[in-house]
Structures are given as structure tokens and as C-alpha cells.
Design a protein around this nucleic acid. Structure first.
Length: 275
DNA sequence: CCTTGAACCTGCGGGC
DNA sequence: TGCCCGCAGGTTCAAG
């Protein structure tokens, strides 16, 4: 499910219910996600207060009272559900915590590309998942100048580069296509050919599309629901993603949305509007 | 270094 | 109905 907007939506949902609560019990049902669960995780979580929940790129970071951080990555198909009362038993309910006020949070992940780790706060930024991540796209340090410099000596096309978490962290397959469409830039354009003006425009559209998606509660495709069970609805605003064969929303009937494969992922664009 | 492609795993929808 | 194929929001590792 999750690119930055979806993860941000998850974080916002979890905050309301979990921040300030004490973990009364935790269960690891199936430990073999992409990264094996840390040994003794359930026991280590028991009794800790969830002080603050944050996001870095596509990672959920639950800061705990003993100076530790519970890191959650949702992979491709992960979701977090919240509830009260009976603990969920589903086949893909791999990890559950229950708080002292009777709420539970459950990580479900059919494809098991997700990961959970528990790390000391002091070691957070050097954790293998987080070290080397580029700037947050919604922060000020992601700007046209920085992007232009970052692209200057890259060889390949812009679209896979936008998804490179070392360049800028949090953009995935949906929002890369959407941001490029809004900036009228072809996904095939060589990175080094983008002018500073185009980089500024692209930074603007990346920020705009991510902010708009967060505002809409993220995109609900196959798996993604918000922790409260509500659906995000940004998928109804896709201009190009998964719109192959549809009329381009900008030039209308004059061109249809194309699907191509780049670095093994689908890209969607309008050949007429994006140069 | 940099880039691409395959691999990880399950589920769903389409075509036959 | 059932089977086979392609496809899916991410990351990482090997190979070129």
C-alpha cells in the first residue's frame, strides 16, 4: 500500500489512539517478514509507554519510554488496523500490540515485504534502513537546486531516479508518475537533461501531489485502508497512474495515457503533454 | 561509482 | 469452474 502519503496517514491514525498509551501486551504471530522480528520483541515492548509516533520516508517510528524506537515498514501490502476488544486472528495478522486502555493495533501484511525492528534511539539515524536516505520531499531542503545537483551526473531516466530513496525519500511508483505529469516532464527524460527551471517545477509538483494525497487520506488501492478503517480517496484524483488507455486529462482526446516499464515498474504518462 | 533485473511473497482479475 | 499468466504501493542484492 504505502508511499509517503499513505504512511503519513497511518501515522496520523495511530497517533490518536496510541500516543501516551502503555503497551500491556504484544504478540508476534509470524516472525518471518523481510527482516525477521527482533528476538524477544514482545517481552521488550511490554510495559513501555508509546510517547510519540513519527514518520521518516516510508517508515513509522514509535518512540518508546525506555529510549527505544519501534520501527515499522509496510512493504508493498502492509496495513495497520486499530480496534478495541478481541485481538484479530487473521492469517496475515503478524504482529499485534494491546494497550492498557483496551485498544489494539495489528500489522497485517499478506506479501510479507514489510519489516519491524526495535532500536535504541541513539542508533536510529544510523540504522541500515534510515542511513543514507535523502531529504524528506515536503521539507525545505528538498528544493530545485538540490534536485538539479542530485540529477546532474545521473545517467538513467528521471522516473526511476525520483523513486531512489537516496535522492529523495518517500516517493514511490504512484506519485513519481503523478508528479512528472503535473510538471509536464516525460518519465523517459535523462536526469542530466533537466534544467534548473524544470527541477524547480518538479519539486513543486512533488510537494503538491504528496500534500494533496495526504489531505485525501492517501490512496486506497488493493490493500490500503487507514488504521481507523476509513478509505483514502486520492486514487480518484490520479491523472495518469493506472489510467492506461484513458484520455489524457490535460489534452483530452488528443492523446491517451501510455504505460511503459522502467526499472521493472510501470510508468504512466502522456506523450503529448510530457516532454 | 551507477544502472538494470531478478528475487522476495501472496492474492486478484482476465483470458481461455 | 479451474488453471495459467500478468500484475501489484518496496527494497535489496547480484551482475553488467
Amino acid at each position: 500500500m504505502p508511499e509517503l502519503p499513505e504512511v503519513e496517514t497511518v501515522v496520523q491514525g495511530l497517533r490518536k489512539v496510541l500516543e501516551g498509551a502503555v503497551i500491556e501486551q504484544a504478540w508476534v504471530r509470524r516472525p518471518d517478514l523481510r527482516l525477521p522480528f527482533p528476538k524477544g520483541l514482545a517481552g521488550k515492548l511490554k510495559g513501555q509507554t508509546i510517547e510519540r509516533i513519527a514518520r521518516r520516508a516510508k517508515y513509522v517510528l514509535c518512540h518508546l519510554s525506555k529510549g527505544q524506537v519501534l520501527l515499522i515498514h509496510l512493504g508493498m501490502s502492509g496495513r495497520v488496523k486499530l480496534g478495541k476488544g478481541a485481538i484479530p486472528e487473521g492469517k496475515h495478522a503478524h504482529f499485534v500490540i494491546r494497550t492498557d486502555d483496551g485498544n489494539w493495533a495489528c500489522l497485517e501484511d499478506p506479501r510479507r515485504f514489510g519489516a519491524v525492528d526495535l532500536i535504541d534511539q541513539a542508533l536510529l539515524s544510523s540504522h541500515p534502513f534510515l542511513a543514507g536516505l535523502g531529504p524528506e520531499p515536503l521539507e525545505k531542503d528538498f528544493d530545485g537546486k538540490m534536485l538539479h545537483k542530485g540529477l546532474a551526473r545521473r545517467k538513467g531516466p528521471i522516473k526511476p531516479a525520483l523513486m531512489d530513496q537516496k535522492l529523495v525519500a518517500g516517493i514511490g511508483n504512484i506519485y513519481a508518475s503523478e508528479a512528472l505529469f503535473r510538471a509536464f516532464i516525460s518519465p523517459l527524460r535523462p536526469c542530466s537533461s533537466l534544467t534548473l527551471t524544470e527541477c524547480k517545477a518538479l519539486v513543486r509538483t512533488v510537494k503538491d501531489v504528496l500534500a494533496a494525497a495526504i489531505e485525501s487520506g492517501g490512496s486506497s488501492l488493493r490493500d490500503h485502508v487507514r488504521p481507523d478503517g476509513e478509505l483514502g480517496y486520492f486514487q480518484h484524483h490520479f491523472a495518469v497512474y493506472a489510467q492506461e488507455g484513458e484520455a489524457c486529462p490535460r489534452c483530452r482526446a488528443k492523446a491517451r495515457i501510455l504505460r511503459i516499464v522502467q526499472a521493472g515498474r510501470s510508468s504512466f504518462y502522456c506523450k503529448r503533454c510530457q516532454r
